[in-house]
Structures are given as structure tokens and as C-alpha cells.
Design a protein around this nucleic acid. Structure first.
Lengths: 241, 241
DNA sequence: ATGGCCAATTGATCCATGTCAATGTGGGAA
DNA sequence: TTCCCACATTGACATGGATCAATTGGCCAT
């Protein structure tokens, strides 16, 4: 439990004492399972819970009235999900599992409890929320100002970095359960164009997205092509200025 | 001080006791002034402060290597700005004043101090950060899936709602110090196209963006046209579930 | 094996928005 | 007044990515 992906992630920011970690593991108790095909919670719901993702991938998304959707976050093990749905009167987004998911349910009183005794943990949470925000900001920048190819490449690189932090994947690549349709809804593109861009990246010798796996052939080249800089993930070891 | 825009905003989420408000006003002490033309802090800076905006508008942005930029947040009075720049080792974004700005400087130890005594305030901060995230998410959705016209309209409506919460603007509209260039960098469009879209909205009888003021001619129509739903701003009175 | 279905792939065409290039306009500095 | 300069506006043209329409391939249920 003390080595949950979530604790592992927080440790990238603060050095947590044993008692801090105990409080974290308290939050990590109420385990639940979810299968793809059914939302974990949905927009408009008033009694939604938050979750700490232990295994599997999920995505948060927003449905527009014209039937299209925009995925706003891809969640991997260690990620916190649904914070807005417990703090807000009513959830403003949906979350659905991409793979079978194991996650711990967190209610607002759990947060109160955790923060009351350990303000340092409140800061750690604020950091995690801020890191999620930074990820969101980079996606925003991608949608606003990057070409489709840079956007796709950037996203694949970001996932590599995030997975590495929780011990998944390696230098050569990582397992990725996303379909090209999911990529399209994430990156504000059509599935057809995602397919063309993936071919382009493959033919340029940068990376491959096939059979549920992302494989990098030319990491430095891809970094340069996408103008990728991992600073926004703030991964460089515990510091707590 | 107890009626600062910031306190006013937090009260939309939690009922704050007098002692809570005292702690908030403690944060609101170190007033500083900034003029347009010079960043309040910039990406890469390691000793950046955060600020609570008291008067004036500012924007957060990210510069790409090709010289383009994407504005990631427009900040109005009552908004907190630079949270990521104090929690992260190094700031991942820049902030510049749009108008002359008056703002209170906040350092990480101020936050620690505030949270230690009043966990309820930690939750309120988390709420404020989550609301900023919700705003970011809506911009993301706009960039990914909305037409230029809907995107512009949606943004103008969002600003109206946010300003109203801190007592600015009225039913007819609000003062808006943004140039069309700023709008373009915010909405991922070219300035030329922003101009065309504004004309379109004007000619459709929805709203007007001129001489530093946004004026609504047909609010219900614009709501419908943009598919605007203010739930994501979570403005409906203090509740703290 | 067969049928059915979903994801991936490819080609042809269209269109929303970008880019380039002028022109207009209002307010500030001298 | 006059110049200046940033912002707003408009037209002509270019293009990245969407849309429409097939085709292919893998996998599961029968």
C-alpha cells in the first residue's frame, strides 16, 4: 500500500514521512472495480465520488449537444480523478474506464480528515491538482497552436513520461490501450486524420502506435519535432521548496 | 479587506467564518502594482510568487519556439494566479498584466500557515483551483470541438459570469480591456478571423465587442447559439456539501 | 468455417480558418 | 496641427484537416 502508484507520484513532489504515508494509505482503502462501457460517474451527477486510480486507464470527457465529445484528461495509475465532481455541487464532466479499472473511492470528508492532521498533505494534494492542471494547459496549447502531427507526438511523449513516474513502460515504449478514436477525441482531431498522422510519424521513423503499444524509434528526433519539454510535469525529485 | 473580490469568490463555495476571513485577509496584505508591458513572472523562473488579483486584468500564456503564443488563462479581479509557479520547481508559464494591476503577493509559506490552522480554507483553495481547472477544461473543449463563432461567444459569456460573481459588469454587458489580438491568442484563432467572427456575432444581433466594452443584445439567443451552460463555474451559492 | 462487428486504412473532395496584403481609424506625443 | 502607431477591418487566396465513402483485417460468437 505504501508503494501505491499514487504515493509514488506524490513522492516526486514532497518527501513524505511514515505518518504522512499512513494517512495516504487511509485514503487508499475503499477499493472498487469498474469495467469499460459504463461511466464511473457522469456530468450532472450530484453525489459523485472521487477516485485514486490504482490499475487501468480511464478518461474524463465532455459531451456536446451536437453529439461530439472532447476528452479532457487521460488518467493512468496513480492519478486522482473526479476532484471537481466532489467539490462542485454537480459534476461538470464524465469519466469512463478505458480498460478494467481498480480504484479507491475518496469522499470529501476523507480529504478533510487528511488535511486537518497533515497540512503538508494538503499542499501535496494541491501540487497533484496543479500538475493535472499543467497537463491540461499543455493540451490546451496543443489544440490551440500545434499542428496535428506535433500534437499527437507531444501527447505520446507526455504519456511516456507520466507512466515512467509510476513505474510503467521503459525507454523503448509502453503499452497503450487507446484506440485511434480515443486519440481523436482527446486531440480534437478526426479519427481519419489521426490515422494519417500516425502513419506520418511512423514513416518519419519517430514512433509507432500499433497493437496496443507505443514504440519509440527516434526519441531525440521526436522530442525536437514536437518541441517537447517535460518541465511542466515537474518530475525532478522531491524538493518542497 | 473582508470584501475583497477574492473573499467574495470563495464565499460562493464555502460559508466563511470571521476567523476564516481574517486568515484570508492575512494573505491579502502584501500589495504590489504592475504595469502592462512587463511580465509579472515568466516561464523558467524559480523564485516566482503567486498573486491574488485585486484590480485589473492579467493573462497567463505559453510561448512556443516558433514564436506563436497561446494564452491559457484570463485573470480578472478575485482570481488567484501563479499557483503552479510556486508549487513547481520552476514556473511553466508566463503572466502579464493586460491593464495596470494591483495584486497581493502570496508565498508558499503563507499557504502553509493558512492551511495549518484552517483546513476548511485548504478545501476552499482546492475549490478555487478546481474552478480554474473547470474553466481551463471548457476552453479545451472549445478549442477541440467548437466552431470559431461558438468559441468566441462562449468565452464572452463566461467572462460575463465570472465578472458578475465579483460584482463587475451588469446584464447589459461589461468593460473588457482585451484587444482582438489577445482574443485570438486566447481562442487559438488568428486576429483576422476573430475580427470576422465578431462582425458575424454583431450582425446576428447577439453581442457587440467594441471600444473596450462587451454589450449583449440577445443573451438567450447567444446562450443557445454557443451551447453555454454555466454549471462548470459552480456559482450557485455557498453549500460545502 | 461463417457471419458480424469494430478498429484501421486509404482515396477523393470540401470547407473553415489561416495567411498575405491593403486600408481605415482613433488617440497620444510633440 | 501633424505624425505616429497600435488596433481594427476587409478582400483575395491558400491549406490543414474534416467529411464521405470504401476496403481491409482481426476477433469473437455461433
Amino acid at each position: 500500500m505504501l508503494d501505491s502508484p499514487f504515493a509514488r507520484k506524490l513522492k516526486a513532489f514532497v518527501t513524505l514521512s511514515d505518518s504522512d504515508l499512513n494517512v495516504v494509505s487511509t485514503l487508499d482503502k475503499r477499493k472498487r472495480h469498474f469495467a469499460p462501457g459504463r461511466d464511473m460517474f457522469h456530468a450532472g451527477q450530484t453525489d459523485a465520488s472521487a477516485f485514486i486510480l490504482a490499475t487501468g486507464w480511464a478518461c474524463g470527457y465532455i459531451l456536446l449537444t451536437d453529439g461530439t465529445r472532447q476528452i479532457t484528461a487521460i488518467k493512468v495509475p496513480g492519478d486522482f480523478l473526479g476532484l471537481r465532481s466532489i467539490l462542485f455541487r454537480t459534476s461538470d464532466h464524465n469519466v469512463e474506464p478505458i480498460t478494467p479499472v481498480e480504484a479507491s473511492e475518496v469522499r470529501i470528508n476523507d480529504l478533510f480528515g487528511a488535511f486537518a492532521g497533515t497540512p503538508r498533505l494538503a499542499i501535496a494534494f494541491l501540487w497533484a491538482a496543479s500538475r493535472d492542471e499543467a497537463i491540461l494547459v499543455e493540451h490546451l496549447v496543443g489544440l490551440g497552436r500545434r499542428s496535428a502531427a506535433q500534437r499527437v507526438g507531444h501527447f505520446l511523449l507526455e504519456l511516456a513520461a507520466r507512466l515512467k513516474l509510476v513505474g510503467l513502460g521503459d525507454k523503448t515504449g509502453y503499452d497503450c490501450p487507446m484506440s485511434q478514436y480515443l486519440l481523436a477525441d482527446t486531440l480534437g482531431l478526426s479519427a481519419v486524420h489521426v490515422n494519417r498522422v500516425l502513419r506520418e510519424l511512423r514513416e518519419a521513423g519517430y514512433a509507432t502506435f500499433q497493437l496496443g503499444r507505443v514504440t519509440f524509434q527516434d526519441l531525440p528526433g521526436l522530442f525536437a519535432f514536437c518541441d517537447f519539454n517535460a518541465n511542466y510535469l515537474d518530475h525532478d525529485g522531491p524538493l518542497l521548496k
